[in-house]
């Protein structure tokens, strides 16, 4: 049985693959979305325990997607996983409802710890 369901949202195939391989190896059930709009659709289909969300994506960005998900599910657990460490973006993501932040390129242990923390919380 899977440890928990994780939705990996990133327009970059490489980042989705990297996160998916890491988490699947730890027993998580992985779902993928390629942009914010795809993430919103898949979130309500799959009902993941945790969402890993990139910020800069085409069609719909990560911050907008967090707002859309949290509007319908205020308990959604979203971790921003992004290369953007600009203070303004960090603050905007937190205001939008993100619960944690992992900066790319992520260290495997840090990502796993962030996911574990949300699964327990």
């Amino acid at each position: 049985m899977a440890v928990a369901k994780v939705l990996c949202v990133d327009d970059a195939l490489f980042m989705r693959t990297k996160a998916a391989r890491l988490l699947a190896g730890q027993g998580y059930e992985i779902y993928e979305a390629v942009n914010g709009a795809d993430a919103v659709d898949k979130y309500f289909d799959v009902k993941p325990d945790v969402v890993l969300m990139d910020i800069t994506m085409p069609v719909m960005g990560g911050i907008e997607a967090v707002k859309a998900i949290r509007e319908k599910d205020p308990e959604a657990k979203v971790i921003m996983v992004t290369a953007i460490s600009q203070r303004s973006m960090v603050l905007e993501a937190i205001r939008a409802g993100a619960r944690d932040f992992v900066i790319k390129p992520f260290e495997p242990d840090k990502l796993l710890e962030a996911v574990r923390k949300q699964c327990q919380g």
Partner: peptide
């Protein structure tokens, strides 16, 4: 995708 992400990460930082 990996090469693109390298550019993305360096530029974002």
């Amino acid at each position: 995708s990996a090469i693109a992400e390298m550019g993305n990460i360096i530029t974002a930082q």
